[in-house]
Write a protein that binds this DNA or RNA. Sequence first.
DNA 1: CGTGCTGTTGAGGACGATCAATGACGGTGG
DNA 2: CCACCGTCATTGATCGTCCTCAACAGCACG
Lengths: 244, 244
Amino acid sequence: MASPLDLKLRTLGVQADDSNVFLEAAKRRLHVAAHESIIREADTAEQVRILLAGTACAYKTNEDGARSILSFHHAGDFCDLHRYVLSDLELGIQALTDCTVAIIDYQNLDELLSRPAIASAFWRASMLEMARYRERLSSTGRSTALERVAHLLCEQLARREAVGIHSPRLPFSQIDIADAAGLSVVHVNRTVQTLRMLNVLSRANRYIEVMDRKHLAKIGKFDGRYLNMSNTASNWAVQVETRG
Amino acid sequence: MASPLDLKLRTLGVQADDSNVFLEAAKRRLHVAAHESIIREADTAEQVRILLAGTACAYKTNEDGARSILSFHHAGDFCDLHRYVLSDLELGIQALTDCTVAIIDYQNLDELLSRPAIASAFWRASMLEMARYRERLSSTGRSTALERVAHLLCEQLARREAVGIHSPRLPFSQIDIADAAGLSVVHVNRTVQTLRMLNVLSRANRYIEVMDRKHLAKIGKFDGRYLNMSNTASNWAVQVETRG
DNA sequence: CGTGCTGTTGAGGACGATCAATGACGGTGG
DNA sequence: CCACCGTCATTGATCGTCCTCAACAGCACG
């Protein structure tokens, strides 16, 4: 039974032997309770963290105290590779559910990076993350609340599937979605209700549970190719037709 | 007299000897006229391009034909490193002014990347680009048109300074700004006029010319630290005060 | 001297923000 | 077991920012 991190490394092109070295280096564990912080906005610890289980988000707090969620992290995702490369980036990571985190000291990371397959996997991972930012930016730019929310949910669902998490339920509160989509909580609530009305989300009002992914992808104009996950992408083929 | 690319490499921590090897590899040149495409959205050429002079933008065309500008490129910027790592990313690069572009074949790039200083510089560059996307995302999220436009302009001005371009004039049309900020052209026009009224932009209606950077930074809540350009950043210190 | 692109202006309308209040649920401690 | 509290979800009403449509002006180009 492959773990999310296993799957992730495989997707990034890391073979069994390198993968094992990696997993060996990431032995140290940390548990973080929901709503706690995994990395503070001005963290200086000389180690990187990898999310093994649970869901987290990268956020920034702006001057008026509002939290702005920049991306979500799922099992298998690197949390703070950026800090290894650029020290003074003010970006916090917060656990949205209970999380298990692996820790690798910068020293050990240096060694890992001397292996070409691992170095290239890290670079690939960074570029994929960047592609997600681009997609989010163009989705946030000029689309309606309904499209934004649908797109956001599609992306998370697809990424979770790619690491073996097949549950239709997403561990986000409407507040999280609002902070990520750049919408007010009130309006997110109305948007979610619209999606429920359309039978795209389940009626369960304590959860975000996707009932009709195809429809959701269509609404969100979601084309998962940018996630570059060959096996998964096919389930999320372009649903968008040009129409008059 | 250092070229923008020189300056950029230096900022990324590349020393003279590696830098020379790099410049040697980037001998091949290409001229692209304003409004022409540097890289098409489905380009497959096995080479990377580096902008030596001029200004360009990375864009996506969405299903209804609208152009969405994801980032701007200035002299010294890599255009399409992402294609080297992730082949099938649909992202076009378009010249906004007349541009000079250097070309490096993937083969030669492989060799360059065997030099640790260069490899690490590329990784740094990617991470810096990612930091800019994050910043853009949080600026686009929940701020007003005025803030967005101001922030956008500040960023470009600061990045241009970092590679030795000190002109207060930015080579963007209001259409470019609209596509980048996710606003309508009409509203960008009104926003620009507000900035002119405030004496932040010059009255010249054929150009975007910044007269008062401090004020612009304040309006855009621009804090250039995310650009990670030690010498330049100080001119752009935080202008934002908490206020009641 | 037209043609096209960019910039400008006005009017009307829609989407989403904000304010305010209430409901539902889970956990805690008495 | 129940009262209390905090968090999240929901609802209604009002308001403002920004979009859309439409027309026109200025300038560069051939």
